[in-house]
Design a protein around this nucleic acid. Structure first.
Lengths: 223, 223
DNA sequence: TCCATAATATGAGATATCTCATATAATTGT
DNA sequence: ACAATTATATGAGATATCTCATATTATGGA
């Protein structure tokens, strides 16, 4: 982890201004942290000292179950907060957060800003919106996972995460995210190839029939 | 649906004061609504005109999928909000809310209070806390549903919802909530009876070995 | 460059869960 | 009080998904 100082910090503060998210002057409190790919930003089970706001990069929220299984709860993208659970709730089992690419965040120290943030209607409104969207998404994922086979959820995921017509996510990550075994994931990929929806190219897949995938994905939707 | 007026309304305002959740005087805007068991408080797909706060009773949030399956997303209990998604998000697919018992709510009209609520740090802080807990619970349910068989989740549900040592939820509701077929739910109930954890009494079940159920439920936990 | 590790791949057998059919019992509205 | 609806119950067969074993192929670090 690297903390940007002086001019470098200043450059980020100017380029990615988040002053509009707060009614009080936040800039002076902001630290700018950079994390390398695969670095753990928050350790599972250990309360963080900061509220984070992602400005560049991507991260993943993980939880480990008692049986050893690991779930990828969600992706964190640019302009997302994390650490907000610990800001709001004195008691909370902290989930692990891992950078999936090089990731730069604003880190807002709790000890200096908690009180101010919790009094700031502008910030709280943004945070409530963010949380409401997050909660809605989780609810959607939950009910979809119970109501549809992997086929549908995978079709959706492929379309969401494809780069143009090329899909290149790692299978191991996707297993944790969609909550299925590696074996089963590959079965369904093989089916999609058999049916001609996808074509394997090295370790990537080319989307040949987006319409077919779309048909499978569409049945999930409501929200 | 019945709207309480005058003295009856007044009595509820005094007995269940929620003034502390707001920095501005909310009482004058509060309507008190009573819904009968099984009545729909919010129609799926139809935006409500109120933010609701439950003071007596219980309700359920439902969503209908394209394939006709219905999911019970969550229960709403006393002191919970609902309709907050519509307060915060201009675009949102509204879920259905149905009273499971006679339910009395405070109903806060959007058209008179939205602006004030969205400026009120006290209220927004409470709402953010509520949403963070909700979102955490959904995430937990999601990952649990993908990581553990019904056996574990049902054991947890039985212990959570039992009245002393008697369990008396309706199977049909529980299917929607745990996202499994009626058939499978009954299989697992039958197993629990075989193993002596439960004993059927008429249409209820008596919990004979709470410790065993606890063992099954415990593996879910982290949060 | 080489080794250890992580990721991909595939088969075989088990099991968790679903669908459909059908029967009976309870509940509700008229 | 009766008919219609809703909830409970059970069997049989299908399928979605998992576990485990085992290869092969990439990848990152000393």
């Amino acid at each position: 982890m690297e903390i940007y100082k002086n001019e470098k910090r200043q450059r980020y503060l100017e380029e990615y201004s988040i002053g509009y998210l707060f009614a009080f002057p936040i800039e002076e409190f902001l630290e700018v942290h950079e994390y390398k790919r695969d670095e753990w930003i928050i350790q599972e089970g250990t309360r963080p000292d900061f509220l984070f706001y992602v400005i560049e990069g991507k991260a993943k929220i993980y939880v480990t179950h008692q049986n050893g299984k690991v779930s990828l709860i969600n992706f964190i993208n640019e302009e997302d907060f994390f650490g907000e659970m610990e800001l709001l709730n004195p008691i909370y089992y902290t989930k692990g957060v891992q950078a999936s690419t090089k990731t730069v965040c604003f880190a807002i120290p709790f000890h200096r800003c908690r009180a101010r943030m919790l009094e700031d209607a502008t910030f709280l409104r943004e945070l409530a919106k963010f949380l409401s969207v997050k909660s809605t998404q989780m609810a959607a994922k939950y009910t979809q996972s119970l109501s549809f086979p992997l086929e549908n959820r995978l079709a959706d995921f492929i379309l969401q995460s494809a780069d143009g017509e090329v899909y290149k996510e790692k299978h191991v990550t996707v297993c944790d995210f969609l909550g299925v075994s590696y074996r089963h994931l590959l079965y369904v990929f093989a089916q999609f190839c058999d049916k001609g929806y996808l074509q394997k190219e090295g370790r990537h897949y080319r989307i040949l029939q987006p319409k077919e995938l779309n048909g499978l994905a569409r049945v999930l939707m409501n929200e």
